[in-house]
Amino acid sequence: MTINLFKYAAPTAFYPAAGRLIPWFGGLALILILFSLYWGFFETPERLGGSNPQKEYYRIIFIHVPAAWMSMWLYLVLAAWSAIGLVFNTRLSFMMANAVAPTGAIFTFIALWTGAFWGRPSWGTYWDWDPRLTSELILFFLYIGYIALHSAIDDTRRADRASALLAIVGLVMLPIIFWSINCPDPNQCAALHQRSSLSNIESNILTAMLTMTLGFWLYSFATSFARLRGIILLRESDSGWVRKIVEREART
């Protein structure tokens, strides 16, 4: 049994499929996030041991790290859809990139916010020009730039293509920017963040963190699909099938 995935490259086929998937993604995301919250607050130790002991405030890790991961992953997704759109000239890819951007920006903001509230008790300051914090801030600027450029151009086709190109340029520059922030002095490098040590992290903490990541991931699916459906309706408002959908929705 093969499912023709290319069928869903057409907005006509994608719109109802996304509509059916959203409740599943949303529901699963809710379950996973609630599970992770329960596990994170009740099944984990009150202290983070190891070389850098931390008290209860370490629990911010359960949203901070997943949000930071999602912010980077979603930028990758955004750039990938932009590249596909530019290469294959498919409308839906640009819409997809567009739909992902706000969710990505929100996760970037969450990562920054929680980073600040984690930094206060553990480093003694809300903001430090720590390489990873700064990198996250730059990522936030890139998201904002993408959204701003897209909304500044009235012509949809130009807006799509111009912001897609910007996303790709941003993706190429990201490693260089991150690296330059990480290593401002090429003679020696130092960072406040400790190296990530997923392998020797306590298993309960890891469970809560990974389920939250999965929950956030499904949540991003749900929100970007919902946003995508809106974009499709607006852009295809001339076509007959959209009119039929609108009539049906108006009745219910």
Binding site: F141, L142, A148, L149, I176, I177, W179
Partner: peptide, 10 residues
Amino acid sequence: SLLILPLYIP
């Protein structure tokens, strides 16, 4: 400036 300044960082 919003688009380009972040790219100037390195």
